[in-house]
Amino acid sequence: HSIEQTDVAGLPAQDTWNPSSLQLVSKFKNPSSSCSVDVSAMWWDRAGAQEPCIVTACEDVVSLWKPLDTLQWEKVHTWHFTEVPVLQIVPVPDVYNLICVALGNLEIREIRALLCSSGDESEKQVLLKSGNIKAVLGLTKRRLVSSIGTFCSQQVQIMTFAEDGGSKDEQLLMPPDETVMTFAEVQGIQDALLGTTTVNNIVIWNLKTGQLLKKVHIDDSYQASVCHRAYSEMGLLFVVLSHPCAKESQAFGSPVFQLLVINPKTAQSVGVLLCCLPEGQAGRLLEGDVKDHVAAAVLTSGTIAVWDLTLGHCIALLPPVSNQNWSLVKWSVTDSHLLAGQKDGNIFIYRY
């Protein structure tokens, strides 16, 4: 099918979203004196059985929570950080019993692996990378990609973990001569990796050979785009971007997510869907997460908005609870749940 001009999703959507599409399943509070910075879901092996666990990160502590029978959560492991604060959790698919975290002040200075020693189940942390880390992403098949440094001094590295999270192998990818800001794996092509750069290019690598295959310049209307998801279909590359720096326009309102189609052979691209805030909603994107065909964003207004990229419109709005703005939103990788967090450590789990 030919792809026609950009559709604008979310305008006006007030009468089309379904508030019941998000149902509260459980909630818990992470008691910590520091600010809550991230939340994630992962599988953790306990006594030979894999359980879907929740990881919470505050600036000075990362905790692992296991589920109890009654939709309650119990804290089972805690790792403390006294020197450099935690910035984000870096989930690594296909690795059990290992959590990666990025630490730093404004920028990432360290990536650490958090694990438990098998003998006494005591918490350990191992420094994996240090330096001026610009981007990091966990990839399938137990791999972690990071870019360290800028411009010509940049190194793009893939680290592969053993199944138990232990020994590792490293490989370099050919760096582009521009700073990589975000990475995304390409569904449908297991050895392809995308990156977005500071000068609005999307770069494509071959993970197996380390080759830099293509640079695609995308529309300059949105600077510093973040790539959340990419998939290849029918010879085209579909890329979901968010635009944290986008300004509100009269025509479209506030664009939050954009679906872009790229022909990797010719480096030509075209926007096909723009997800904007529903009428009556103000603000910009603070942080977002995309899983399959659903995109969720925390807005500067403190509300969470969810878009269905196949329907092409906003399907749910989650206003602040107990007068407290939302600050975190993540899709669970273990089930179809949405994890929503507030700065004081409250975590709410919604079924989508």
Partner: peptide
């Protein structure tokens, strides 16, 4: 704009670009 603006499409783009790119 439409896919016609994107130029010729190849289902094997990844393999083709890998064979053309410098090692």
């Amino acid at each position: 704009c439409s896919t016609a603006d994107l130029g010729p499409i190849s289902l094997n783009w990844f393999e083709e670009l890998s064979s053309e790119a410098p090692p």
